[in-house]
């Protein structure tokens, strides 16, 4: 990468930050994501986490093309393939909970990330509650 390219890239990033600012300021009081946590190896939404689904459903506005993105992850305990499946199941469980709260199914984008893009990076085999999570965002 040339120095020019690096500078241009830095400039773009700076612009992105500037552009993002009004939205960040506007969202001061409203959360821009909601997290639903899971027990180790589990893909069912605990009663204690139902309230998080309620909060998410209370933020979702009506009118196309609103989309709610439901992205699941798993911690680095166990085989990656199993964890990918688990993350999909977790996301699907949350999506079902949101659909049960009236979010139209075609507005829900369900993503299983497995152990990629983890909220907290850990070595393999480390149980990390922050990574056993489904993150709900919307746009």
């Amino acid at each position: 990468m040339s120095a020019y390219q690096i500078r241009a890239r830095a400039l773009c990033m700076a612009m992105a930050v500037t552009l993002a600012q009004p939205a960040t300021l506007a969202a001061q009081t409203a959360p821009d994501s909601i997290r639903v946590y899971f027990d180790t190896g589990s893909a069912s939404v605990a009663t204690s986490q139902q309230e998080a689904l309620d909060r998410a459903a209370r933020l979702f506005r009506e009118g196309n093309p609103f989309v709610m993105i439901v992205a699941g992850t798993a911690d680095r305990v166990g085989a990656p393939g199993v964890n990918l499946q688990l993350s999909v199941q977790r996301a699907a469980a949350v999506a079902n909970g949101l659909a049960a709260r009236g979010i139209p199914a075609d507005r829900l984008q369900v993503v299983g990330r497995g152990i990629s893009e983890l909220p907290v990076e850990t070595p393999q085999g480390v149980p990390e509650p922050e990574n056993r999570v489904v993150e709900i965002t919307w746009r």
Binding site: A26, A27, T29, A30, L59, E62
Partner: peptide, 11 residues
């Protein structure tokens, strides 16, 4: 939507 924005404190 008005209710949701008032409820959430969106902006």
């Amino acid at each position: 939507n008005v209710a949701v924005m008032l409820d959430a404190g969106a902006g």
